[in-house]
Amino acid sequence: MLEDLTPYIQKSSYNTGDYWPALLESSSYQNKIYGFPRDIGVEALYYNKDLLDKAGVAYPTDKWTWDDLKAALQKLSVVEANGRVKQYGLAMEGGKWSLWLNQNKASMLDDMRNPSKCTLTEPAALDAIKFFAGLMNDKLAMRDADLSQAGGDAAVFQSGQAAMIIQNSSRVSAFNTAGLKYDVAPVPIPANGQRAASAGGAAWVMSAKSDNKDAAWTFLSWLQSADGGEKLYTLSGEIFPALKTVAQSDAFLKSGSPPANRQAFLTEAENAKVGRFGYFPDWDEMGGSIIDSGLQKVWAGEQTADEAVPAICTQVDAFLKDKGYPKQ
């Protein structure tokens, strides 16, 4: 069991306002905070400068839309006469699909905290799913299964098999070690859409059975302080920090290492929102076994969104009803 940190926060006046928007909600339950996220998993668009230069594609900016992204991918993807793809424009893990959904102002459920029904059949949601699936069907982006077999997005980006990837800051250290010529930009959004970064990260917690809770709190609050653990982890290049003051400091922005446009991560973090995953106990089971499992058929090109999504929603609605949602 986890210890409720709320009393310690109140007693010590710990500054929870320094966390990115909605981030603490990922480690909270029923208005009680049970953990402090060490980082925030916001994604950026990584791009290989050499491959973009070769294809005559301008480097992406924070003004790019989905249309701009697709136009760039059409120039970057190299398909041989036999249909084999020599180089993909984009590689993105299928599990990140909800980024497109939330950017298009859509949602999986009518309430991500206490849902009553699936909303993936709504037009904005279907359009987002079709956009991602269309990139794969048109051979502009790698299929999720192919990406996994190729060793993941870091492997295909480093080998030049993909000119762009969408990923969080966890790839920075590896790409710098490999000496890649790359940079990052905010993820393109649809016209009239919104930025919708993931408000989640790995969290430090305290056991409810700890023998010395006061000492545990002292260490935990140091780990999550701007001059303590957060700064050390940031200087090591391991994380994009959960604390805004650390991300806005020279420790992150002027590290002296690529990417040059580190501001892209801040742009995304400033727009972190609830919606990329559920905030209720049965989310992992429902999200994994029904939603993600059903959408794999779309990412694989075995079904269209119009074929797969209504069946997914039927299963989700039955699951929610069986589990007694919405909770009173």
Rank of each mutant, 00 (worst) to 15 (best):
K231L: 07
V57C: 12
S13K: 10
V184L: 07
Q315C: 04
D68Q: 09
G294N: 11
A311E: 12
G56I: 10
S289V: 11
M206K: 04
N271T: 13
L76C: 10
Y46M: 11
A91V: 09
I33E: 02
I165L: 14
D250E: 12
A124R: 14
A269N: 00
A199R: 08
A55E: 14
N48T: 08
L235W: 06
A199N: 12
Q149G: 00
L69G: 05
K96F: 14
G134H: 13
S293C: 10
E122V: 02
S198I: 13
L235G: 04
W97G: 02
P37Y: 05
I239T: 03
I290V: 15
N176G: 11
A226T: 14
D211N: 14
S293D: 15
W222N: 06
A196V: 11
V42D: 07
D306A: 07
K130H: 14
T6W: 02
K86G: 04
G56N: 10
A226E: 15
G89Q: 05
M92I: 15
V42T: 06
F175E: 03
V309F: 03
N212F: 07
R84M: 09
W222M: 04
K321F: 10
A242M: 03
K70V: 14
Q303D: 02
A318D: 03
T119C: 00
E285Y: 12
V205R: 13
R84Y: 10
L99M: 10
Q167K: 15
S210V: 10
D250Q: 06
P37F: 05
A150Q: 04
D282R: 08
L73W: 06
K297H: 10
A22W: 01
P326I: 11
G17R: 05
G193F: 04
K130D: 15
N261F: 11
G200S: 14
Q103W: 11
T267G: 08
G201R: 12
N82H: 11
Q224V: 07
F131R: 07
G160S: 00
K209N: 09
T61G: 14
S77N: 10
Y325G: 08
K70M: 09
D183V: 11
W217A: 13
Q167M: 09
D138N: 05
K96L: 15
P190M: 12
D322N: 08
V187D: 12
T245Q: 03
S27M: 00
S293H: 14
Y19P: 03
V309Y: 02
M92R: 14
V184P: 00
V205Q: 12
W299Q: 05
G56W: 13
A55T: 11
A199L: 11
D227W: 03
V78K: 15
D306E: 15
L69V: 06
W299P: 01
T304A: 01
N102A: 11
G17Q: 11
D111V: 02
K209H: 03
D227P: 01
W20A: 00
Q315L: 07
G287Q: 10
A162P: 00
G134T: 13
P37K: 07
D127Q: 15
Q103E: 15
A145T: 07
L147P: 02
G228I: 06
V274R: 05
G134N: 12
A145S: 13
V79C: 01
P188C: 13
E3D: 07
E230R: 07
F175V: 08
A106F: 08
G237M: 01
V274Y: 03
E80R: 15
K297Y: 09
L45E: 00
N176I: 06
E80H: 13
P310S: 06
L109K: 02
K96N: 15
W64H: 08
K86D: 07
S249E: 07
